[in-house]
Nucleic acid binder design. Structure first.
Lengths: 180, 180
DNA sequence: GCCTTCATGTAAGAAGTTACATGATTTC
DNA sequence: GAAATCATGTAACTTCTTACATGAAGGC
């Protein structure tokens, strides 16, 4: 997606909660945000510089140990405005969910294709593992049933769990039919 | 996703079924494949040239009317091998589903945020429309219950319908809770 | 005749991936 | 002292989007 620079808004969104280093932001894609977006540090560091040039964020230096200087970034009021504007805009596009397995499946024309069953079981295992991971995340982050502090985070986790539950059930259903 | 050139395999996959022009391939992304991948003609035409350089496809010219020459592409046996290899490879990555609405939702922390309800209703409408479209596609392409000719296509349509059904139900559920 | 669709390309630039590169701090 | 993690960057390259550009054929 070489377009609206959504990564920019993710960074602004994260910084609107607390001050973070580039490294912290990079790590966020391994956990929370990783469920629905990805980014590498080589993309993040240059963008942080650009956002600072545009005065949407600033940084202060924090000394760690004796020599290492961390750059602690924080959002400016201009940055908050830009973030809020983005949130306020309509989101009229449903982007195609680029799923390589689904792509491959499209080109399997017959239930007799020997590739089909291995593909299905591989994916079932993957999505089952993901589902387990998501459920762990849920019980770690929202142990009591009231999703008090962060509604959005709760909802996207709930959504991801439902999606993976549905995905694994669908795969299982095909596996049952194919192997019968 | 600047990586494994999956578009290449989509083109090979489409051409393994029948001869197509670049224009036909472009159009395929408006219907069938559009459910789970996107591409513009400006990406397709240069890639067709590259694939022909690599001898994975060839073309013949077909005269339309008096002057217009269409390039009808077809897959070579080398191309078929490459396609089959791709299908045989494991697909061990679940790519993050980049959904801008989910992204925005992540940064809505409270049920009291005035942006929440409009966002939800907008998305509900969008996904409801998509669901209707998908169901129409299904009944147009697979009118009888046996999915005889093209299993893969049937399954991905089924998957998309389930996904959108789940998505709209999830949104409706939140709307009910928020507006109560 | 006019408008829509068919048909094929190129150019510029943004976004994203993979690899290269370096060094400090913490933990065991 | 070694290994893992913290921390920040750049370079090269591919992919993808948006816009520019042109012209033929078909339907009304």
């Amino acid at each position: 997606m070489a377009q609206r620079n959504q990564l920019k808004y993710i960074i602004l969104g994260l910084l609107s909660e607390k001050k973070l280093t580039g490294y912290d932001i990079t790590k966020a894609f391994d956990s929370d945000i990783g469920e629905f977006w990805s980014a590498n540090h080589s993309q993040i560091y240059p963008l942080l510089k650009r956002l600072e040039d545009d005065a949407l964020i600033t940084h202060e230096l924090e000394l760690v140990g004796e020599k290492l200087e961390k750059k602690l970034y924080s959002i400016t009021s201009a940055g908050k405005t830009v973030l809020r504007e983005w949130l306020s805009e309509p989101t009229p596009e449903i982007s195609a969910t680029k799923d390589e397995f689904i792509l491959k499946l499209y080109f399997i024309h017959s239930a007799d294709d020997p590739l089909l069953l291995p593909m299905l079981t591989e994916q079932h295992q993957l999505h089952q593992a993901k589902l387990t991971h998501l459920k762990n995340q849920m019980s770690r982050k929202f142990p009591d049933e009231t999703s008090q502090n962060n509604l959005g985070h709760f909802l996207i986790l709930q959504h991801a769990i439902q999606r993976e539950t549905r995905y694994t059930a669908w795969l299982q259903d095909i596996i049952d039919k194919v192997s019968r």
